[in-house]
Simulated scan of single mutants.
Amino acid sequence: MMMMMMMRAGYSNSSSSSSNGVVVIIFVLIVLLKSPSTLGNGNLFEELELTWGGHRAKILDGGKLLTLSLDTISGSGFTSKRQYLFGRIDMQLKLVAGNSAGTVTAYYLSSEGGNHDEIDFEFLGNVSGEPYIVHTNVYTQGKGEREQQFYLWFDPTKNFHTYSIVWNPHNIIFMVDNTPIRVFNNEERRGVPFPNKQPMKLYSSLWNADQWATRGGLVKTDWSKAPFKAYYRNFNVANACVASPSSPPCTAKSFANASVPRGLDPRGRRRLRWVQKYYMIYNYCNDLKRFPQGLPRECRFTKF
Rank of each mutant, 00 (worst) to 15 (best):
M3K: 14
M5V: 15
M6C: 09
R8K: 14
Y11I: 05
S18E: 11
G21W: 10
V24C: 01
V24Y: 02
F27C: 04
V28T: 04
L29Q: 02
V31H: 00
L33M: 06
L39Q: 07
G40Q: 05
G40T: 10
E49L: 13
L50I: 06
L50V: 03
K58V: 11
K64E: 05
L68I: 00
S74G: 01
S74D: 12
G75V: 01
G77F: 09
F78Y: 12
S80K: 02
L85T: 01
G87A: 00
R88M: 04
L93V: 15
K94T: 07
V96N: 01
A97P: 15
A97D: 14
G102Q: 12
T103R: 02
T103D: 03
V104Q: 05
S111K: 10
G113A: 04
G114C: 01
H116N: 07
F123M: 03
N126G: 06
V127K: 12
V127D: 01
S128F: 07
G129M: 02
Y132L: 02
N137C: 09
V138C: 01
Y139N: 01
Q149G: 06
L152T: 11
P156T: 04
K158E: 08
I165F: 02
W167A: 07
F174A: 08
N178W: 08
P180A: 09
I181N: 03
F184C: 04
F184G: 04
E187R: 09
E188S: 15
R189S: 15
R189F: 13
R189G: 15
K197V: 13
Q198L: 14
K201A: 15
L202C: 11
S204R: 07
S205T: 12
A213P: 10
T214F: 02
G217R: 06
P227I: 06
C250M: 07
T251W: 11
K253M: 06
K253H: 04
F255Y: 13
A256V: 10
A258Q: 11
S259Q: 09
V260Q: 05
V260M: 12
R262Y: 13
R267K: 15
G268P: 10
R273N: 10
V275D: 07
Y278K: 15
M280I: 00
Y282F: 14
Y284L: 02
C285N: 08
K289I: 09
F301S: 00
